[in-house]
Design a protein around this nucleic acid. Structure first.
Length: 472
RNA sequence: GGCGCCGUACCCAAGCGGCUAAGGGAGUGGAUUGCAAAUCCAUCAUUCAGCGGUUCGAGUCCGCUCGGCGCCUCCA
């Protein structure tokens, strides 16, 4: 299976060709663990999970690396603003290290609930300070840096390709519109590689360096860690679209300057999940976490389905109505899969009929065309509706397609008939009573009892085998 | 002010210039049911924000207008 991606670097659809035959080096920008991740934050990790599964499905051996930014970073690229970790620690009354650990755990709890595979290497910034220092040293030795006001800066004027991917080269960057200018910088695009001039009294996270005690600038970690785990030149780098102009632009500059070679072949960026009135953020309200959805009675996987229903490169509008739609669709899909499982065993794709093979081919075409997951979901439904495909083939198809979509169809089971489960005697009696009333055609009474039961959270469903119930 | 994205049915959302504009949800009609619920079947955009252009042919390309969003500050 040949896979095509829209490469942000050049903005065209390109067939994926690995550097090393059969292998893929994949680096994904991870979370900064100073707060809970909201559901918008979970989009890139879900998309990257589908990307990884697709590459594996296509037969590649993927080395998936993701950073965890657990070191404090300023809210600005100069020496201004406030350190997010310290701010959060102060607000929560915890140490910065505890903050990092707490929110890292919370993050992976969420990814687990979304059935996102854990990267092969999850690397913490605080455990790679030596690598970062060494890269800054290299940059200094090669003449790409200057020191000013105690901080080490990357000198973008020394790197002619600066801003190529973002299309910043011809553009006069307007700076200072919304932030205070860091007067230590020679150019507004320059960014800090190493801070020593921290104005924060109780900076908990500091390390010794050739430039004095301090801490790293936030772009350097991805460059240093990706080089360590994937080498100086690797295949794919992912992240949110917002990273293109600053973070990834700076990463490219420092990595290619330090390594002296091309850094990344394919850049894939996901768009945002937005609320009706715009971006999801704390200040605007609408900051929802996976846990919030669970608290409202949704399964985290409903949200995965919701994400899959939109293309990763398009803004996706979150509404409760569309999450409801995702839930209904996903539950129906699970139910149908469970029925197919009850009917028999899956047919191996190698033994597919022509009709089944066509669906599989369509699915593979769609996923390999820049991960068109909405189209893939449509393929799933057309598979289920087809009259030309046997049950065994349908099941075989679903399980095969789910290797990429990760909806856990293999685990789909028909809901056990709960009628066997013990109920308290009062409710048992009410159900009996209702049956009596029905037998006597006293439907007014039987319906009233049904309403009463519903009020107690017991929903009665009549069936040919008698009344069944489930908890609401 | 600069850069970029988008505007497809009630909602969400695909659509690489060319068969009848995917799919899900909601709705509607029917089957089934005492009635519900669930399920099944059917139905649901002569039309793609508006206007003009290119083309044998445009939702898809170009221009303009209107509207929405993102980025240029940390940010998925």
């Amino acid at each position: 299976m040949k896979v095509k991606f829209l490469n942000s670097d050049g903005r065209e659809l390109q067939e994926f060709k690995p550097i090393e035959n059969g292998k893929v080096g994949l680096y994904c920008c991870g979370p900064t663990v100073y707060n809970y991740a909201h559901i918008g934050n979970m989009r890139p990790y879900t998309f990257e999970d589908v990307l990884r599964r697709t590459l594996e499905y296509a037969g590649y051996e993927v080395n998936h690396v993701m950073n965890v930014t657990d070191v404090g970073h300023l809210t600005d690229d100069g020496d201004e603003g406030e350190d997010k970790m310290i701010k959060s620690a102060r607000e929560q009354g915890m140490s910065v290290w505890d903050i990092a650990e707490f929110f890292t755990k919370a993050f992976f709890h969420d990814t687990e609930r979304l059935n996102i595979n854990i990267p092969h290497h999850v690397c913490k910034a605080t455990e790679h300070i030596d690598e970062m220092i060494s890269m800054v040293k290299t940059l200094e030795d090669k003449g790409f840096t200057y020191t000013s006001g105690g901080n080490v800066y990357f000198d973008t004027a020394k790197f002619p390709e600066y801003g190529k991917m973002a299309g910043l080269d011809k553009q006069e960057l307007q700076h200072g519109a919304r932030t205070v200018v860091d007067t230590n910088k020679k150019n507004p695009q320059d960014f800090v590689l190493w801070f020593t001039k921290s104005k924060f009294e109780n900076q908990a996270m500091t390390w010794n360096s050739p430039w004095g005690v301090g801490y790293p600038g936030w772009h350097i970690e991805c460059s240093a860690m990706s080089s360590k785990y994937l080498g100086p030149h690797f295949d794919i780098h992912c992240g949110g679209i917002d990273h293109i102009p600053v973070h990834h632009t700076n990463e490219i500059a420092q990595s290619e300057a330090a390594n002296g070679c091309k850094w990344v072949n394919y850049w894939l960026h996901n768009e945002f999940v937005i609320m009706k009135n715009g971006k999801m953020s704390k200040s605007k309200g609408g900051f929802l976490t996976v846990q919030d959805l669970v608290d409202k009675g949704y399964d985290a996987m409903d949200y995965r389905y919701f994400l899959l229903a939109g293309h990763y490169r398009s803004q996706l509008i979150f509404t409760w109505e569309s999450l409801d739609a995702a839930r209904t669709a996903r539950e129906g899909l699970l139910k149908k899969t469970a029925q197919l499982k009850a009917e028999g065993v899956p047919v191996d794709p190698r033994d597919f009929s022509e009709a089944a093979e066509k669906v599989l081919k369509d699915f593979q075409d769609h996923i390999s065309q820049d991960l068109n997951t909405p189209r893939c979901l449509a393929d799933i439904w057309s598979c289920l509706k087809s009259n030309d495909i046997s049950s065994g083939e349908k099941l075989g198809l679903l399980l095969d397609m789910d290797r990429i979509l990760g909806l856990n169809l293999a685990e789909a089971e028909l809901k056990e008939d709960l009628s066997g489960e013990a109920l308290d005697s009062e409710i048992e009696a009410m159900i009996q009573q209702r049956q009596e009333a029905r037998k006597n055609k006293d439907f007014a009474l039987s319906d009233r009892i049904r309403d009463d039961l519903l009020a107690r959270g017991i929903q009665i469903v009549d069936s040919p085998e008698g009344p069944k119930w489930k908890k609401n």
